[in-house]
Design a protein around this nucleic acid. Structure first.
Lengths: 250, 250
DNA sequence: TTATATTTTTAGGCTAGGCTAAACCATTTG
DNA sequence: CAAATGGTTTAGCCTAGCCTAAAAATATAA
């Protein structure tokens, strides 16, 4: 059997074997971590992901990650070299996008059709994403009118897995004092953070002004309330800058 | 540890440990098989179920069933004695009803909210029933107006797991020639049978007349069509008898 | 009531996906 | 450039659920 010359023979067939829930989750996290906070982009723009990071995200020991990466590598879903980290292959990227599409469509559906709060949808979608059929995906996508974003402001890959157009946003922590903007994305999966953001009215679409950065975090104005957000939170709030600074009030 | 006098000490606590999908499925099937075609009734009216029957239903070898029954027995969810078959305990019965409630609410929701055909809902509900939260259950129940029956005519246990009132129906195979009635329940999970019934318009609510029983099965009138249903199908079609025979036409 | 047939259980294996402890590599530090 | 440090992998174990083959119990027939 030696001698398959050529560049990328790999196990393309295996990509058709139905994957386990765990496998899908690993692929999804490789994509998310590799996209590093930014929206999530083309496969080429993706970074190499470390065993450790994956272990943290999956709530699992690094040794377990190694084991899984070997399997996924044999399936041709990731490029993995010991001690060097991991990246998705084209096949793995497709799977990850599909899972992410399920997840985000579910979030949108739970929010819009069943009245879940936007901060509540993540957990439920996380469980369901692996168990819905393509028919289900299609029907909720249709019901929703084929949305491009979920309730957190994350983009939803299209039915053919194309990525929606994204506008360039900046983290709240990167705004300059006085700048106005609209919350475009709340990029955390931590339930406590989500609850806090929801409580403060900091959801996608909300208009805000960054007052100033201080040692403890960022001071921000939302409606007529002013809050101090610790840096960790200011890092996950993505803002679409609006008009420039010092506008017509005060 | 000897000497817990009293009748039913058992492992009540374990019933609180979250069960695996497989465990839930076994419990559900013990209930369904123990209810033998009839609607599904009180725990007391339930029959003992054999290892073999369970194996057939679960698409699994009898040896595997034995293994699982031992575990469920230790958890206090079934009463199991080697070679004598199995029955649910009160705790197991509750779990089974809960799973069934999920299943049937999902079927109703998929049908009414997402436009699935009534014959298509079973498979999707089968996968999802183990993965929805109580919040999800509640929201779809509410959306549906707390229905008492699913699209196949099966009763849906209430939020407190009470059983809805059931009216006494008879199998099509048990009707007498000339009797009229309404399809009340299509009691099969076989996809081909479901498709056939759907194709013939034999869904819950349909008005029918039994013409006669012949060697090959039962001849039945639906609208202005007449069909011959093999006995196996006539056994799973439950009818609510309407007016008596020979009414005002022909 | 003994013999045969059927059902059920036991024994021993396998895979997936976790874990721990120990070995290994790479990178940083002295 | 050697040594210490910390992330990574290997080796070996464990549990859930399934399997097959063989043994045991029950049910049926003679």
């Amino acid at each position: 059997m030696g001698g398959q010359r050529g560049v990328e023979p790999v196990n393309e067939l295996a990509a058709r074997t139905p994957l386990s829930e765990a496998q899908e989750d690993y692929l999804k996290q490789v994509l998310l971590l590799g996209s590093g906070g930014e929206g999530m982009g083309k496969l080429e723009d993706t970074l190499v992901v470390s065993t450790q990071d994956l272990a943290d995200r999956m709530q699992v020991k690094p040794a377990s990650v190694t084991g899984m990466l070997k399997k996924l590598s044999e399936l041709g879903l990731v490029d993995y070299e010991a001690y060097r980290g991991v990246r998705l292959t084209v096949a793995g990227y497709k799977v990850a996008l599909e899972v992410l599409r399920h997840h985000r469509l579910l979030e949108a559906y739970l929010h819009q059709a069943l009245g879940y709060g936007w901060e509540e949808v993540h957990a439920e979608a996380e469980k369901l994403e692996h168990h819905i059929s393509e028919a289900f995906e299609q029907r909720i996508a249709e019901w929703l009118g084929h949305p491009s974003h979920d309730p957190h402001g994350d983009t939803i890959p299209g039915a053919n897995l194309e990525l929606p157009q994204t506008t360039p946003n900046r983290r709240l922590a990167a705004l300059k004092g006085g700048e106005y903007g609209m919350v475009a994305r709340v990029a955390t999966q931590d339930q406590d953070s989500l609850n806090l953001f929801a409580h403060l009215g900091l959801k996608p679409g909300a208009q805000i002004q960054l007052l100033e950065h201080v040692a403890e975090g960022s001071r921000v104005q939302v409606g007529r309330e002013r809050y101090l957000l610790p840096l960790s939170l200011a890092q996950v709030l993505w803002i679409r800058p609006k008009g420039d600074c010092h506008v017509d009030h005060e």
